[in-house]
Each structure stands twice: as C-alpha cells, then as structure tokens.
Simulated scan of single mutants.
Amino acid sequence: MTRWTMVLLFSACAAAAQVPDVSQRPVSRPDAAPADVRLEPSGAIATSKRDAVIRGGVAAISPRPRMRTPAVVRAIRKQQQLAARGGVCGDPGLQGKIVGAVPGHLPGCGVAEAIRLRSISGVALSEPAVMDCPTAQALKVWINASVKPTLRDMGGGVASLRVAGHYVCRTRNHKRGARISEHGKGRAIDISGFTLEDGSVITVLKGWRSRESGQALRQMHSDACVAFGTVLGPNSDRFHQDHFHFDTARYRSGTYCR
C-alpha cells in the first residue's frame, strides 16, 4: 500500500467519525400525556375513541368531528342560495321584489313601502303577495315557529302556502260603508291551505273538522295568535270558513284571535 493510499484512507475514517448519528425525533414523555392516552411501543400516540392533537409537545384530546347528514347539507345549501339571491326587508329569508308606494282608490287604502313576496324561509307562496315588511316578518315567524314543525311529519313537510288573498283596496268583508280592511293597507294575508312536499294538499275548508288534519290546522291557527294582531278562522264567522285571515293590526286589548 502506497503512502498516498494510506493518507486517503485515514482522512475518510476521520471524516466519518465526525458525522453525528441520525436519531428519531423525540416524542412526548409518557407522564406528560393525559391519562386516557396510551403510547405505543414505537412512541406514537394512540387513541381508540378520540383523536389526539399534539399541542406544545403535550397530547390534547379533541372530539372526532361528526359527519353532516344529507338533510343538514341540503338545509345549509338552501340557506346559502337564499342569501346569495338576496331578499327584501333586509332579510334573505324573505324572497321577493320591492314594489314601493302602492296608491289606493279609496280613502285609507294604499301601502307606503310595499313588497311582492314570493317565498318565506324556503316555503313558496302559491302566488306573489303584496304586503308591508312587518306583515312579511310576522308571516316568517309563524312559518318557522309553527307551520314547519307542525307539518314536518306530514307528506314530507310543507312546500308552499295557498294564498287566498293579500293586498286589495276594499272594505272589511266587502261590506258597503264598512271600515277599510287591513288588506287595503298591505297588512293582511289570507291562507286557504298548505301544499306538502309529496304533492298532497291540506285545505282549511275540508281539513278543519277532519280527523287527519284538523288538529294540525287548529295548532297552526292558535300559534298564529302570537305573531299577528288579528287571527280569524272557521270558528270566527261565515266569511272565514275556507281560510285563515292574518293581519298585523294592533289593539290595546291584545291579539284578536277567533
């Protein structure tokens, strides 16, 4: 072996001796982990029921996220679509069109700031209804708090409301010489029935005294007395046998509910 060969071998051995050993990244000490977290022999943290998250070298337990059900996903998408389209009265849940001032041909008729409402919280109206914002907002309260939960297990839930009347410049019950109806002020709407998701229909006329839908209709009628100033139904008089009348008139004695 030549002198230069010996020098090269000696240099290579010296350089190799200066290279540090490669070691694994240190893991958390067993006594630093929570009691319900066990450490595998390899040093990895293992949990059987919950996920472990390393924060500052200490294993912290966080709940495993739950998967969203298809119904929840559909509801979220529906609300996102409503918000994207915008709404009237400053509420994305009230879908419609701003109409503005609506004059009346009789003294006392007309709406200063009217809207034409087509759906509320995803529930469609059978025809666009003209009213003011307070009435639209009261309708939304009633639909969300009463109509949806009451009809949830019937025909897949409510799809739309059957509108029997909204804004029209007339007297109460069309009587000559009577006061102007709340319909003539944009504060009222008449509902004659409900169309369900499966296409079936519940009407006030046929359902009020029926065994199948009578209880649901009476419940929704009663609940409306919280949201509106006037609530009339089949038990009020002969003019309301086939529909509910709702308006936002206010009385000193409280809601007029019949």
Rank of each mutant, 00 (worst) to 15 (best):
I98T: 13
V53I: 15
I76F: 02
G110Q: 00
Q137G: 02
P65N: 02
A32I: 07
A136L: 09
P134F: 07
D91F: 08
V123E: 03
G122I: 04
Q137M: 09
G96K: 03
D51F: 12
P65G: 07
C109D: 01
G108W: 04
G43D: 08
A60I: 13
V88Y: 09
S62M: 09
P107N: 04
G56F: 06
G87L: 04
L106G: 01
K78Q: 15
V102H: 05
R74I: 04
G96N: 01
S121I: 03
V123I: 15
R64L: 12
E40A: 15
R118H: 09
D132C: 03
V73K: 12
V102K: 03
V99D: 02
I76K: 08
G108R: 00
V130R: 06
G57M: 07
P41N: 10
G100T: 02
L125A: 02
R66A: 12
S48L: 14
Q95K: 10
V73D: 10
R50T: 14
Q137E: 13
R50S: 14
A71V: 08
P34R: 07
G57F: 09
C89K: 04
D51A: 14
P92F: 14
V123Q: 04
R50M: 11
L82S: 14
V99L: 11
A112M: 04
D132K: 09
D132A: 06
A33T: 14
S42L: 09
R66H: 09
T47V: 11
A83V: 11
V111T: 07
A44F: 12
A46C: 12
V58K: 14
S42G: 15
G104C: 01
D51P: 07
R116K: 12
V102L: 01
M67N: 05
G110D: 00
L94D: 08
A33C: 12
R118A: 09
A83C: 03
I98S: 11
S121Q: 06
D36W: 13
A124I: 00
P41T: 08
E113A: 10
R50W: 11
R68F: 08
S126Y: 04
P63R: 14
G96E: 02
E127C: 05
G122R: 09
P92Q: 02
A114F: 02
I61T: 13
R85V: 08
K97I: 07
L117C: 08
R118Y: 04
I76Y: 04
V130I: 13
S42K: 08
R68H: 10
K49I: 10
V102C: 05
H105C: 00
V73I: 15
P92G: 03
L39Y: 10
